[in-house]
Design a binder for these strands. Structure first.
Lengths: 208, 208
DNA sequence: CGATTGTGGTTACAGTTGTTCACTGACTGA
DNA sequence: TCAGTCAGTGAACAACTGTAACCACAATCG
């Protein structure tokens, strides 16, 4: 499947990636619907018309960014929601993983949080589709847990969606405390863990 | 406190409200950071320069919109989170109330959901401050419940925040199903109610 | 090798943007 | 009544926008 790309294709991918990187940087302080085509090309250092060789519009670029930000995240679901360890251990692991991810890719996280309800329909839909996939994957993982015996598919999906939304909320909170003192960041982590613990308790007493 | 305004002040308020209404309409299909000053004045039907008589910038207008969308909502907290009725009744009441509010003020809800993580800092902060107030009020209401005996202040605030975020998520889901068939809307209401029930169950088993 | 493909550059266009300035004329308060 | 206040106007500014046409030239393919 992966034969080495020609020099030409490789260079094109490189330029395309430069577009994505530059856009992500610019989007830290504005929304996609106000991102100008010229603004991006200026940041990349190419002519305005070069943009069209890679994207139809800035909305198109946004969809590509969704793919970049969320597409590579699916494999992490399995290990994060795995049944290993007791409940509190799993929660601590998940919160820690989210914190690390926000630290490593703050611009990606900010972009998703911002554009999830943002002004560009196609991007909203792309994010919605990815999050729905996440929920399905979390559901599939939850179904493996022994605690899920007796749960209906609908209830499992409900719980999975709650978890996914909670992850996003937590990520957004970490984002807000990115350059806050460590004390504040620890407080955020603590609140997030307590929220998840409460949901986890609700889960254990859901039946009966 | 409220003596009748002069003709002049009254007319000014009217124009100001026209700005807010027009902006809210325009913001259904874009984000605040891309809303142009001229765009708004054009929709209102006044000269561009008239804008400055009312707002310093579009960000300023956004903050005013936050006030309009959330400021009048505080009195509803008390009755919604009141201890009257059993748990399922309260949940049903809350979900129904959210659904009605989204139906009545869809543009306001969309604006809040969109700009909560949007590209304009001052607006984000204004929304954050209002939501923090909501959380405090929900916490104060929860403290009255007998179920809250033995809860620490910190845990109560955590739960209140979870409820507030859940309300927003629910509102956003209703927003997405605004012009969907009744069947879909009912499904959304059902999922929202089950989410809140799970949280409620977690709440009852939090201690011990 | 020669012919073709296609990324990126250049120039140009018509509209739009935020902001300034000087202005009008209806309302206001003494 | 009369001077003053001030919401809204109109014209002008420089800077910006998306997009179209045409060009250059290096990588590719037959």
């Amino acid at each position: 499947m992966s034969h080495t790309l020609g020099i030409r294709q490789a260079q094109k991918q490189k330029t395309r990636q430069a577009f994505l990187d530059a856009a992500l940087g610019l989007l830290e302080e504005q929304s996609l619907s106000s991102l100008g085509l010229r603004e991006v090309t200026r940041a990349v250092g190419v002519a305005p018309t070069a943009f069209y060789r890679h994207f139809r519009s800035t909305a198109d670029l946004g969809v590509a960014l969704v793919e970049e930000a969320l597409g590579s995240l699916h494999p992490m679901i399995g290990t994060t929601v795995s049944p290993a360890g007791d409940s509190d251990q799993r929660i601590g692991r998940a919160v820690d993983l989210i914190a690390r991810h926000v630290d490593a890719y703050p611009a990606h996280v900010r972009f998703i949080a911002r554009e999830r309800h943002g002004g560009v329909q196609s991007v909203r839909e792309a994010i919605g589709a990815q999050l729905a996939r996440f929920a399905e994957e979390v559901k599939a993982e939850l179904a493996k847990h022994p605690e899920s015996a007796g749960w209906s598919d609908d209830d499992l999906l409900m719980l999975a969606g709650l978890y996914v939304d909670q992850m996003l909320m937590t990520a957004s909170l970490f984002l807000g405390a990115l350059d806050a003192p460590e004390e504040e960041r620890a407080r955020v982590a603590d609140v997030a863990a307590r929220r998840m613990r409460l949901i986890s308790i609700g889960r254990h007493h859901w039946l009966g």
